[in-house]
């Protein structure tokens, strides 16, 4: 029976409530494996494990609970150990390293911030800032939409202007929120967002960070900004390039 590993905590950290549900259907009960100063939050692995929504949410849920009780090093989804002893072995072997990471992340949480363009707001901005384009649009409309070539030309001009604004606005989230955070890390790229950035924030500074997010949205009405957190520090658990996607 393999062991599914959620995360690593300090041994002294209070255990999760007994009834905490892990992954699987029916959910496997979550338990703790202690080795010296460290402990791993684990459960039995279900017979078949695949990245489905229910299990991803369970993984997330367990780690969120663990983070509420202290500091956790979250493992990436789907980490399986052959058995409990192998988990203890890893903890024993790398105790110094994990303790260092736990110290580093103590009292810190992750916020993930995503921004998209409000398309209508951006199109308005484009129209407002380019009288020529505006006239072109009106003319096209008055002639019933214009010919295919005219529409193509108009669309090309608009697309170009929108693209420029994407380039202009994409760095805004990282730039404007960095001062309110301890560290930043670009989220996985290319999923339909203008920007997707995670920030490591001191728990004590969380209110200030959230206020900065609100301000960002208010000051840039063409952006729709959404922040998710507090999260376990997924994006900051590994020492490495502080920025840039992990591949």
């Amino acid at each position: 029976m393999s062991t599914y590993v959620y995360g690593i905590v300090r041994a002294e950290q209070p255990e999760l409530p007994k009834e905490t549900d892990g992954i699987g259907d029916p959910p496997q009960p979550v338990r703790t494996l202690t080795e010296g100063e460290l402990a791993a939050v684990v459960s039995d692995a279900p017979e078949e494990l695949s990245p489905q929504r229910r299990d991803l949410l369970a993984h997330q849920h367990v780690l969120t609970l663990a983070a509420e009780h202290g500091t956790v090093l979250p493992l990436r989804f789907g980490s399986l150990s052959p058995d409990d002893d192998a988990v203890r072995g890893v903890l024993a072997e790398r105790t110094g390293h994990y303790l260092e990471r736990l110290r580093e992340l103590e009292g810190k949480i992750e916020y993930n911030v995503k921004a998209v363009h409000n398309e209508e707001a951006v199109l308005r901005e484009v129209m407002d800032s380019d009288p020529e384009l505006r006239e072109f649009t009106k003319a096209a409309r008055e002639s019933g939409g214009g010919t295919y070539e005219q529409r193509l030309k108009l669309g090309e001009m608009v697309a170009g202007a929108v693209r420029q604004r994407e380039e202009r606005d994409a760095p805004l989230v990282a730039e404007e929120l960095a001062p309110a955070a301890a560290e930043a890390s670009s989220g996985p790229a290319g999923q339909g967002w203008l920007s997707n950035v995670s920030f490591l924030v001191d728990r004590d500074d969380a209110d200030r960070f959230v206020a900065a997010v609100r301000r960002l949205g208010e000051e840039h009405p063409q952006l729709e900004v959404q922040a998710y957190g507090p999260l376990p520090p997924y994006s900051f658990v590994e020492r490495g390039p502080a920025d840039g996607p992990a591949q």
């Binding site: 949410l57 993984h59 989804f77 789907g78 980490s79 399986l80 996985p188 997924y234």
Partner: peptide, 17 residues
């Protein structure tokens, strides 16, 4: 969820699904 799938500690002694 993309963070759960794409971020987090990877330990090479463990198999990943």
């Amino acid at each position: 969820l993309e963070l759960v799938l794409d971020r987090g500690l990877v330990i090479d002694a463990f198999v990943r699904v």
